[in-house]
Design a binder for these strands. Sequence first.
DNA 1: TGAAATGTTGGGGCG
DNA 2: ACGCCCCAACATTTC
Length: 473
Amino acid sequence: MKQRPTIVWFRNDLRVEDNPALRAAVDRGAVIPVFVWSPAEEGKWSPGGASRWWLHHSIISFDDRLRKLGSRLILRDEPSLVALRSIIKSTKAQGVFWNRRYEPAIIKRDAQIAEQLRADDIEVKTFNGGLLFEPGSILNKSGGPFQVFTAFWKTCLRQPPPQRTPTPQTIPAPKSWPRSQNLKSLQLEPVIDWSAGIRDAWRPGSEEAQKRLRKFVKGPLSNYEVGRNQIDIDGSSRLSPHLHFGEISSGQVWRAVMKSGAATKKSTQVFLAEIGWREFAHHLLYHFPETTDQPLRDSFKRFPWSHDARALRCWQTGKTGYPIIDAAMRDLWSSGFMPNRARMIVASFLTKHLLIPWQEGAKWFWDTLVDADLASNTLGWQWTAGCGADAAPYFRIFNPILQAQKFDPNGAYIRRWVPELEALPTPWIFKPWEAPAKIMRSANIRLGEDYPEPIVDHTEARTAALSAYDSIR
DNA sequence: TGAAATGTTGGGGCG
DNA sequence: ACGCCCCAACATTTC
């Protein structure tokens, strides 16, 4: 064993299990776990409000876990290189290990930091701790990146499955600990406490991630193909924020699902394909770093978007007059989450009914989702708008009424999040503006006062969208 | 990981 | 009994 400790620079990999950077450092001897809060280095895509809330609590949970293994988490809020150099100096650390991230700004920053540290004669080792397959390693026959999901995923499935990294039973402490700031000083929690809804819905940390995984594999997994679309029930795993912060690895999820004994079942395959979409998103962002802000397809740079601030505000605050849209947007604002089916419906509405740029939707999701992930968010919005890889065709315009009838058939989700419509009988709750006056009176709803009139007419909006898309063909 | 428009079919009402 | 029309119900195509 070496005398000098190794720094493990934790980022979106806040776990002890299946963590290659941590494992490699433990094998060397003493370890100094470090987390640096330096959002400016992430540019315009630094963590949003909901993500910061999550991070605050995830750090508490992770520090607890480390302490049980004889270690602790050192916190800093200064530029990453400054923090690492200062810790190296005060602890005589011999090296810095970390698991790679693949966001464009982070790749650039990490490359610079690695170069500087190596110039200081510090050993730098980086690992793949976040993805099943390394971006850049999955290529089509002509050596380029895949732009169609099924071809990409088929190729992935032919690769050897990622191996589990053994969990350290103890994490050797250094002779002395460097200075650490307290968590409060990072100011991750909101000044005005808006997080009550999120607190009720989520518990950050690895332990909870493992619990959710076990519960999901035991129950909803077998019905995932159908259940994931049922907005009122939500048969999804809800692992996305845990995966984003690396509280659980995609490999752990993968293996738990494969071991469940239903590996060949359709529902299992469909679920694994969702993990596949997460991979696909990261690989695409790696190959096309500008797509966080620019459409992948050039023709969309000419798209006649509408910059209607008032309509955007209606969408954000859940006041569009379309109950399923408003329910989902209020769910997001309150709980920091939205079922995937609902995400597709509201995203289609923003880009196609309101013709508002997908970037506006991406920004809003980025700030409000607890699972906000630059790769997945970028792919999702470009997919919806029709300007991305393997995107929904321009003519695929969700009908918010039909989608609600199909996936929230009893209106339970709408009633939960749009309580002013609670008394409206089910056939009308999807389209209150068509309800007979008598029904509206007995439900005690005055359209335009208690609940908004629809901000656009579906049929007109659809026609307008089709001609807008036609204009760039 | 749609929806709407258009086309086709076949049963039943009716003269 | 027969032909005609209407129109669900389903299929296909178009956006």
